[in-house]
Design a protein around this nucleic acid. Structure first.
Length: 431
RNA sequence: GGAGGGUUGGCAGAGCGGUUGAAUGCACCGGUCUUGAAAACCGGCAAGGGUUUAUCCCCUUCCAGGGUUCGAAUCCCUGAUCCUCCGCCA
């Protein structure tokens, strides 16, 4: 949610900034609504003031033993007019709220202009893609021999799911655990266990609702419950409706959860392999900071995600998203793209965003400043990392000629020191 | 699932339908005192919104939504949630 005061004070300038990210803000409609709101609100409050003062007077007169019948009769007619005005104000307010709830965050000043992902700007690269002296396989081919099975998942559920068996399942678990261990012990994050089902308020707070409901899996039942599309939702909502004191910040949370996405509109995209699934695990980083700290926090958080890739010896590049490619709540975003030899390209494996006060305003998440005045916090989130895609990258980058996959040093403690995962007995030649 | 009891400011916790936006304590901020700190004492201190250059002023808010009333933290209804006891249970 944008700051209504800012939008009111200069709707043209706000519209211009939103246009940079391809969003059309209807200034005329907003201005008309806003003018009517002002008028109706002033009228309504005036009537309320009158009612209040007269009712108080009645109280005083009764206490003094005077006759109040005349005054009470006089006040009677006010109620109906007031109800009408309140109803109209409520309607206008709902319309304004609906309008505002669909408006994305303003891009930060240093975000490059661009209409789509083609406008993203490479910031830096780490590592060098390996040159192979044998015919490489992609993760689907490698995985088939190691225990990755899409047919089984189709039987259990449908497309865009997977089962992992044996060392591959263990690798998946090891990756998540390694990431949690790294962030909680080295980067100052508090590990959290959170619900995988959240209510509609939480999804509104982080911006998934009302605009992106079709991307979510909604549960049947009386309550408005949804499977989480990312742990960003439960983690960020931890501070919803909280008024924190200055020494409560910064807060850094890390959690490993599955993420559930309907992938509506993604038909035909990334249908091969584990790249785009309805269910995938992710280790998520969330920071709650004071406004003045958020720019630096984004750089730090991005670095924390990068540290995972470095420890796993996976080449990547850091992309700054352009105005047209950023998510709804983000003011500034870095994507980490890992090298995938099987696709001969870099693919997104983490997205790190500074949402400034956009989510905080929806969440009513505040902190007292030095003067003791409540100020909105800033929220940041980033994947550190997407576990499924990390597994994909690991298989493809560290594959060996015989179909086994070398384990980076960082993961070996989770495998009793083993140096590679190998095709199980009896599976050789099946790939 | 059954029965009962709660939900009030950052926190704890009072609150007969009428100057109660709400006592008191803690926390916090400022001051006195002190070499400094602590203690003590004095003072300040809810949030959101409207209007305004600003002060002032006004409105809303005591879990949420309805209702009764000239007037609701207070009475009624519905829902959420927490606690206690019983039942069931990984």
């Amino acid at each position: 949610m944008l700051d209504p005061k800012l939008v009111r004070s200069d709707p043209i300038a706000v519209a211009a900034q939103l246009a940079r990210r391809g969003f059309t803000f209807d200034v005329a409609r907003f201005t008309a609504l806003e003018n009517e709101r002002k008028q109706v609100q002033v009228d309504t409050e005036q009537m309320q003031a009158e009612r209040n003062s007269r009712s108080k007077l009645i109280g005083k007169m009764k206490a003094a033993g005077e006759d109040t019948a005349a005054l009470m009769a006089e006040i009677g007619g006010l109620g109906q007019k007031l109800d009408q005005a309140k109803q109209r104000l409520g309607e206008i307010q709902s319309e304004l709220d609906a309008l505002f709830s669909l408006v994305p965050n303003l891009p930060a000043e240093d975000v490059p202009f661009g209409e789509d992902e083609a406008g993203n700007v490479e910031v830096r690269r780490w590592g060098t893609p390996r040159t192979f002296d044998f015919e490489i396989q992609d993760h689907v081919a490698l995985g088939a021999a190691l225990g990755m099975n899409f047919e089984q998942a189709v039987k259990l559920t449908g497309s865009r799911f997977v089962t992992l068996a044996g060392d591959l399942a263990r690798l998946h678990r090891a990756l998540a655990q390694f990431m949690l261990d790294l962030h909680s012990s080295q980067h100052g994050y508090t590990e959290m266990y959170v619900p995988y089902i959240v209510n509609d308020k939480s999804l509104f707070g982080t911006g998934q609702l009302p605009k992106f409901g079709e991307d979510l899996f909604a549960l049947k039942g009386d309550a408005d419950w949804y499977l989480i599309p990312t742990a960003e939702v439960p983690l960020t909502n931890l501070v919803r409706d909280e008024l924190l004191s200055a020494n409560d910040l910064p807060r850094r949370y890390v959690a490993h959860t599955p993420s559930f996405r309907a992938e509506a509109g993604a038909a035909g995209r990334d249908t091969r392999g584990m790249i785009r699934q309805h269910q995938f695990d992710k280790v998520e980083l969330v920071q709650i900071v004071r406004a003045e700290d958020s720019a630096a926090a984004l750089e730090a958080l991005t670095g924390h995600a990068e540290a995972v890739l470095q420890a796993l010896e996976l080449p990547y590049r850091v992309m700054q998203l352009c105005t047209g490619d950023m998510g709804f709540s983000a003011a500034k975003t870095y994507d980490l793209e890992v090298w995938l030899p099987g696709q001969n390209t870099y693919r997104e494996i983490s997205s790190c965003s500074n949402c400034t006060d956009f989510q905080a305003r929806r969440l009513q998440a505040r902190v007292r400043d030095a003067d003791g005045k409540p100020q909105l916090v800033h929220t940041l989130n980033g994947s550190g990392l997407a576990v499924g895609r990390t597994l994909v990258a690991l298989l493809e980058n560290h594959q060996q000629a015989d179909g086994s996959v070398a384990l980076p040093l960082a993961l070996r403690p989770y495998f009793q020191g083993k140096a590679a995962i190998c095709v199980p007995e009896g599976q050789q030649g099946k790939a």
